[in-house]
């Protein structure tokens, strides 16, 4: 559960970890039944209505102004978003 919290970037409290663990166990027991019928011969459906080759012409369209880009920024400086020190590195 702690690991999931790290992956999901949620700082779960001990109480939350405890509560969620119990609830998740019950939910997972219930949803695990999908594997009963998901046999290898059944193809997966990722889109309910199958389409393909949906493209956009390479033509510049409306962009946001910098004011619009930054209008909800919790913090900004020099026309950019400002965040506190980063610990990890780029992927």
């Amino acid at each position: 559960m702690r690991h999931l919290g790290v992956l999901a970037r949620i700082d779960l409290s001990d109480e939350e970890v405890q509560r969620l663990t119990g609830q998740l166990d019950a939910i997972v027991d219930n949803i695990a039944k999908v594997s009963e019928v998901a046999t290898p011969d059944v193809p997966a459906t990722s889109h309910p209505i199958p389409l393909h080759n949906v493209f956009r012409p390479d033509v510049v369209g409306r962009m946001l102004s910098r004011e619009e880009v930054l209008q909800n920024a919790p913090d900004a400086a020099d026309g950019r978003f400002r965040v506190t020190a980063i610990l990890g590195e780029e992927q």
């Binding site: 880009v69 400086a77 020099d78 026309g79 950019r80 978003f81 400002r82 965040v83 506190t84 020190a85 980063i86 590195e89």
Partner: peptide, 12 residues
């Protein structure tokens, strides 16, 4: 560099 920086600015 990233190490020791006080803060970072993001340009998208």
């Amino acid at each position: 560099r990233i190490q020791g920086a006080e803060y970072s600015l993001v340009d998208y």
